[in-house]
Structures are given as C-alpha cells and as structure tokens.
C-alpha cells in the first residue's frame, strides 16, 4: 500500500520545527506503524537524509516508551500503543499526520521524541510504599479481597506512556497520577502513607506544570491500557480527604 506521511521534524529542543511530507510506497498492511517508519528511515538514510527520531523499545505494548500523535489521536486511531498499531488500520493512499506529544511539561527533544521525565519525578514524590528490602511479613499474612486486588491491578497496569496528557486539552496528568494513587489507596499495604502520598504526588504534578482535569474523559478514551476515570474521582477523594485531615500543618500539597 502507498502512504503519504506528514511528519514533524525538529532538529533539537530549541530549534524551530516544521512538517515534512514523505511518500512511503511499499508499506505492507501487516507492518506495525513503527516498522513502517523503520522502512522510511532506511530509505531516508540511503538518500542521505537523517532518520526520523522517535521513542520506542519493547514493541509489544508494555514498556510505554513509544508515543506519536497520529491523525489527531495519541497512539493513533485504535486504543493501543503505537507499536501495536498496524498499517491495515489505514487506507491505501491515505495521508497520515504524525506529531509529537504536545504539553508544556513534555518538551520536544528531537523530531517526535519528547521528555517525559516529569512522570518519573511525580512517582518519586510518593508512588511507592516505604519498605526496606527484608524484614517484611509473610506474603499471605494480609488477605486482600479478590475484587480489591483486581481493581488495584487495573490501576497498576498503567504504562506511563503519557497518552492521557497528550489527549487532554488541558495537558492534565491526572489519569496517570490517579492510577498510582488508586493502586495504593485500594491495597492494605498503601494505607499507612495514604494521605501523604496523595498530597505529595499532586503537589509534584502541579509543580511540573500539568493542567487540571475538566472531566472531558479524553484520557480514558485514548488510554492504551484502559485506565478508568473512576481513578481520578478516587484521587480527588483521597486528596481532598488528605488535605482536610492530615496532621501536617505546613503545606502538604498543591498550590504554586
């Protein structure tokens, strides 16, 4: 099949970017979208033009490294990661526009590569249980209702790709942050630090410059792992409860 690709090219973080149009004449419907770019890159190199830079790693939909805003959707028209999107999704002769994630907190590094380290910093603010290696109780000491364990898993399945931010008109990271807060709010292991966790992670999210959720639910519609906005409601609950009742008098979380 033949494809016309409009791709965002940008030399570096401070360079001005622009769209460039390429023709891919030998795409196969069985190719993944990234393999199609691989093929194009091979052709570009042979022509002496630098390959298009894009993030990718596992190519099986779990590492969360691939991104790309394809024809107006993060990860393209299907609710999967870009690496799991195949060319059979597109029509022969179609023009496909490929852009990087856009958000103040995700600056473009080169071409389609963006900096998502803000997500790591939010996790560092409290996305864990404070236990040292060793000296923990037996794994079966605390029974957890299956429903609760399953719901915690559903939240924990987030791959941190940033599609929620890319999809949101406010570049809000709340689906991402709420997934982690939910996981630990549900599990008994997370109870001890429940309040501080909500406060600190939200504060870091705000400090990174992500927007507020206005409940359009674009994130849920685009999330490749099907994370639910019910998690955002839970985060709202957790945060509000924490701010109103935690013992910390000084600034707990939020604000600028």
């Amino acid at each position: 099949m033949k494809i016309k690709l409009k791709v965002w090219r940008q030399k570096g973080p401070n360079a001005k970017g622009e769209f460039k149009t390429y023709n891919v004449d030998h795409a196969s419907p069985d190719m993944s979208f990234l393999e199609m770019i691989d093929v194009l890159n091979g052709e570009l190199i042979r022509k002496g033009e630098e390959a298009i830079a894009f993030d990718h790693d596992c190519r099986e939909g779990i590492c969360g490294m691939c991104s790309l805003y394809i024809n107006g959707h993060p990860h393209g028209p299907l609710q999967t990661t870009t690496c799991q999107l195949h060319m059979r999704t597109f029509k022969d002769g179609e023009t496909i526009t490929v852009e990087p994630w856009r958000a103040q907190a995700f600056p473009v590094i080169k071409d389609l590569v963006v900096d998502r380290s803000a997500f790591d910093r939010i996790q560092q603010a409290g996305g864990y249980v404070n236990v040292n290696t060793g000296g923990v109780p037996d794994a079966n000491e605390i029974p957890i209702p299956k429903k609760i364990a399953d719901e915690a898993f559903d939240a924990a399945t987030c791959i941190g790709c940033g599609a929620c931010v890319a999809a949101c008109k406010n570049a809000s990271a709340m689906l991402f942050v709420s997934a982690k807060i939910s996981q630990f709010a549900l599990l008994p292991q997370g109870q001890v630090e429940r309040k501080e966790r909500a406060e600190k992670m939200v504060a870091q999210m705000d400090a990174e410059g992500f927007g507020s959720c206005t409940n359009t639910y674009a994130c849920e519609a685009e999330c490749p792992k099907g994370i639910k906005v019910a998690n955002i409601a839970r985060m709202n609950r957790e945060y509000l409860g924490a701010m109103l009742t935690s013992y910390e008098v000084g600034s707990g979380g939020g604000g600028e």
């Binding site: 907190a105 409940n215 359009t216 674009a218 519609a221």
Partner: peptide, 29 residues
C-alpha cells in the same frame, strides 16, 4: 484562573490535527 493555567499547560505549539471522541459541551465549558 483554571482556563489560563490549562492553556499554558498545553504548551505553545498546538496540534495540527485533533480528533477527539469527547462531547462538545465538555470541551467548551
């Protein structure tokens, strides 16, 4: 205040194409 903050969070460079499945009123409050 929210709108200003959310606008700036979106960044200076916008998308060339957006296709969203969200409802109109939610996006245009």
């Amino acid at each position: 205040m929210l709108t200003r903050k959310n606008r700036s969070a979106r960044g200076a460079e916008g998308y060339a194409i957006t296709n969203t499945s969200t409802i109109w009123s939610a996006r245009n409050m």
